[in-house]
Amino acid sequence: MIELKHITKIYELNRADRVVALNDVSLSIKEGVVLVLKGASGSGKSSILSLIAALSKPTSGEVIVDGKKISKLSDNFASVYRRDNIGFVFQKYNLIPNLSVRDNILLPLVPLNLDAKDAEEKLALVMEMFHIAHKANAIVKNLSGGEQQRVAIARANINNPKIILADEPTANLDEKLSLSFIEILKELKSLNKTIVIATHDPLFFNLDFVDSVVEIHNGIVR
């Protein structure tokens, strides 16, 4: 269960320049549901994902995940929380371009210092699941947008997280690849993962497996 209670997020670029990204937002997301956050660019959708992932802290209000106040976590505990609970698919994928597919997917496991056998098993599983095994040794910067996204999804799932966050996942994909991504989401939902998608792509608004669509406008939930 993810709860956002009276969240306000203000970005202060400098003293004169303040951006209110979220203004007293409250939201509740039950376990295993697929929620779509829709809204125009700059409406505050990405800020909500960022707060759920503990990538940033709210200016005021609380983010509670499974009863834990994650908005109060220290930096190191926030990292551990992300590693164990969150799979984040970024809009620009945020892969390391000069690393291979294999090495990119394995990145979240590096600090865990797992046995090679365990790591390889997890790697094989996600590469198979997201159909990227055939590109295991390819350098990421040489892949197409769709392939890069599958690498990002595989990386987000290597630790088998409970929550998947996807920020504008189809922004850089054509329709065919977008449909393929939706199939992947369906598969993830079948694994009982909680999925939050921030998008302004209408493709997501009428999908049968989406449980709710929430509209954000100028930092306020409508």
Binding site: D75, S79, I86, L107
Partner: peptide, 13 residues
């Protein structure tokens, strides 16, 4: 460094 933090690396990692 930001990417590593975002995917769960701690500061000491």
């Amino acid at each position: 460094v930001g990417i590593l933090k975002a995917i769960g690396w701690r500061v000491d990692d």
